[in-house]
Computed example of a mutant assay.
Amino acid sequence: MRSKVPKYVQIAEILKRRIANGNYMSQSFPGGPKLVAEFGVNYRTVRQAFQLLLDEGLLVRGENERLVQPGGAGRTPFKVAFVSSGYCCPADKWLLAVREAARKYRCMFCRVVFDTTDDAILYETLDGDFDLIFLSVGTPDGLLLDKIRQKKEKVVLLFADMSAEGIPFFDGIGNEACALIVRHLARRNCRKIDFFSVMQTPEFYTARRDVWEKTLKELNCTGEAYCVMGNVEEERFVQAHRLAAGFLKQGAFREADGVFCSDVEAAQGLLRAFADAGIRVPEEIQVASFGAPELAAMFIPSITVIRTPPLAPLAAELFEHFLGITPQPGRLRFNFDYRKFTEDELIMQGESTWKNEGGVP
C-alpha cells in the first residue's frame, strides 16, 4: 500500500531521526545528489525536504550555501555519545535521560551500539571526536579498561563504579538500597529470605548479594544464595527460568518464605519456575527484586522492586558539570543517596509481596 504522506515529508522525517541519532556527527550532511540517488526521487522532492528542516532550525546554510547542522555562533557543538549493547532498547530510561539532557543543552547526540566488548566500534568511539561518552559495558577490564583510563577525562561509566580510579560514574540508586527490599520482606513475616541471581558481570551481582547477607544478619534472618554465571548469548530470564527449575528439583527455595532476586530478569524466570512447580506467590513464598519497575509491573504477579527516582535532575547536574556551567571540581560520582528518600518513594509495591505488614492478605 502506497503511503499518503508526501515523499518529501517522509525524507525529512528520516533525516530528522538521523540527526537526532547523531548519524552526521562525524561526516558532512549529505548533499542533494546523494539523497536523490539514495531515495530514488527527483531533486525538487529533496529540496522540499531540506526546506522543512531549515524551517525547523535543524539545518542552516553555511559557507557556499552548503547545508550544515547548527552549532551555535562562534562555537563548535559539544558532541555526546551514548554507548551500550543492543540489549538497551530505544525507550531505555538511561538512554532517554542522556538524550533529553543533550537536547536541553544543545549538544549533538549519537547512539553507538555494540555486540560484545571486543567490538572495534568501542575503541573507535573512544578515539573519536566526542566530548563526552556515556559507556555501559558492565565492569570493564583488560585492554578496554586501559583504553578507558586513557580517555577518562571524557568518559562516564554507567552502573560500574570505578571512581576510585578517577573515572566518572553515573548510576541511580546504589546497591546499598537492596537492604530496603530485604527489610520489606522481613516486615511481611519472611524469616528465611533466599537470594537468586544469574550473573553476567560477577562484581555487579556480588555487591547486591553482600548487602543481602549483611541485612539478614542485622535482622536475625537466614537465607541461602543461589548464584550462577550466565551465558551472554541467551536471554537472561530464559536462563533464570531453567536454572531456577533445576534448583527447585534439588529442593532449593522449599524452606524459604521470601526470595530477593538481583534483578527483574532473575525474578521473572523464578516466578515462572514457581508457577510450573505449583508454588503460589505470594501465598507460599514472596518475591522481590531490584530495578526496572516498568518491566516489573507487567508480570503476573507484578514484582515488588526498588525503583530509580527520575533521572532528569541528575543528568542535568552531570551535563552542567562537563559543560562548565556549574562545574564541581573533584566530583566523580553522579548517583542518588537512597537515604534521602522515603521507602514509599523507592519501593514499588507489587503483587509478589503482601501489601500490608504482617503477612495477612
Rank of each mutant, 00 (worst) to 15 (best):
M1T: 12
R2F: 05
S3T: 14
K7F: 02
Y8Q: 07
I11T: 01
I14Y: 03
S26N: 13
F29D: 02
P30V: 03
P30Q: 08
P33N: 11
A37G: 06
F39Q: 03
N42F: 12
R44I: 15
Q48F: 09
F50H: 07
L52H: 10
L58T: 08
R61K: 15
N64A: 11
E65K: 13
R66M: 09
L67T: 00
V68A: 01
G72F: 07
K79V: 03
A81V: 06
A81Q: 04
A91I: 06
D92S: 06
D92N: 11
K93H: 13
L96D: 12
V98M: 13
A101Q: 10
A101T: 06
K104E: 13
Y105G: 02
R106C: 04
C107T: 11
M108A: 06
F114M: 06
D115C: 04
T116K: 14
D119Y: 03
T125W: 02
D127W: 05
L132G: 07
I133K: 03
L135W: 03
L135M: 12
T139G: 01
D141F: 14
L143H: 10
K147V: 00
I148L: 07
K154R: 14
K154M: 04
V155P: 01
L157T: 00
L157C: 04
L158V: 08
D161Q: 01
S163C: 07
D171G: 05
I173R: 01
I173L: 12
G174D: 10
L180I: 02
I181R: 00
V182E: 01
R188H: 09
N189E: 15
C190F: 11
I193M: 07
V198G: 05
P202L: 06
A207L: 09
W212R: 11
L216V: 11
C221K: 09
T222A: 12
T222E: 13
V228Q: 12
M229Y: 05
M229N: 11
G230Y: 07
G230K: 07
E234D: 10
E234K: 15
E235P: 09
V238Q: 08
A240M: 08
R242I: 00
L248Y: 08
K249C: 05
K249L: 07
K249E: 15
Q250V: 02
G251F: 00
F253H: 06
R254I: 13
E255W: 02
E255G: 04
G258I: 12
V259K: 09
D263Y: 12
E265V: 00
A266H: 07
A273C: 10
A273P: 10
I279A: 06
R280D: 15
R280Q: 15
E283A: 14
G291K: 08
G291H: 11
A292D: 15
A292S: 14
A297P: 02
I300V: 14
S302Y: 13
S302K: 03
I303P: 07
I303D: 01
I303S: 04
T304K: 11
V305K: 01
R307G: 14
T308R: 01
A312T: 11
P313Y: 03
A315E: 08
A315K: 10
A315T: 08
F319N: 05
L323G: 09
P327V: 10
P327A: 09
G330D: 03
Y338F: 13
K340W: 01
K340E: 04
F341E: 03
D344L: 01
L346Q: 02
G350Q: 07
E351A: 15
W354N: 11
W354V: 11
K355E: 13
N356E: 15
E357F: 15
E357C: 13
E357S: 15
P361R: 15
